[in-house]
Design a protein around this nucleic acid. Structure first.
Lengths: 153, 153
DNA sequence: ATACTTGCAAATGATTTGCCAGTGT
DNA sequence: ACACTGGCAAATCATTTGCAAGTAT
């Protein structure tokens, strides 16, 4: 599953646009999907499937299995991006605006965005020396943040 | 568990040296450890715990749980390096000579070393823009190899 | 009405942990 | 002898899959 036929592609600026994207792709607007989308819009940063399944409020939750299926669907139509931090569960974010990668600390789990310029520089280095097309947008760079580096010393 | 007291540190050039390193750290030379070490010396590249548990021959195998424990021990005394490729099981290699990182293909699973110069360049870029100390030696860069990129198009 | 979806249970794959019997030293 | 290890079973964690019942359209 690489590209969806007629996928919205670009970005989503709000619930209405997301709903429209679902309809445009012939997908149904179910309550489970609404919960996940609202949780994605409410999220402060990349969230796990489990966090998203709970929704913004704590009471209404959608099944985890369904959530995984829906996140996969949303990713297929280009509304969501799936990220992998070296440790723990995968995380999902809405695809809005410019893409960038993340660095995450293998010790404390903290993470922060790297910015398009940095990602581009890293990708160029990798491509030039190995021929591989690095996926920094999906797999974060793992390392030690300044704080943990200090503790270690 | 960051550094082992009196760890051998450097590199291993053969079974005898590995055995000596175990003894130097007050660890016992058990058959299970011999199997894993021999498998590591016989391996063509980074191998999974399951592959190593089988040993070079197929018949003599050590328990998987013990193998994980032993690999952890060997890593603690600096004989082994633990690698993470984005997908699938973690892999282990003997620590001999120069360290380098790997790039691996998220599609076909292929991987290849990046070389110290490339790793240094990547690390510098990451440190300069985020302050993080990237661990390219343990977590490989994930991407698409030239072949899979071509298939995709 | 009829696919598309959900929710629940159960299966997977990778690792880890508890525990007691076995064995290097 | 005795603490360190090995082996086996069972527990975790993240994610997937099978299916029957539910529901957008």
């Amino acid at each position: 599953m690489t590209a969806a036929p007629g996928a919205a592609g670009a970005a989503v600026d709000g619930m209405p646009a997301a709903i429209a994207a679902l309809r445009a792709n012939g997908l149904r607007v179910s309550s489970a999907r609404r919960i996940v989308l609202e949780a994605l819009f409410a999220a402060a940063g990349p969230a796990t499937a489990e966090e998203l399944a709970a929704g913004p409020g704590l009471i209404p939750r959608s099944d985890l299995a369904s959530t995984y299926r829906n996140l996969e669907t949303l990713e297929a139509i280009g509304l969501v991006r799936h990220l992998h931090f070296g440790q723990g569960a995968g995380r999902y974010v809405l695809r809005r605006g410019e893409e960038s990668g993340y660095v995450s600390c293998r010790h404390c789990g903290a993470y922060e965005p790297m910015g398009a310029a940095t990602v581009a520089a890293l990708s160029d280095t990798v491509r030039d020396s190995t021929g591989y097309d690095a996926a920094f947008a999906s797999f974060s760079v793992i390392g030690l943040c300044a704080a943990c580096r200090a503790d270690d010393a």
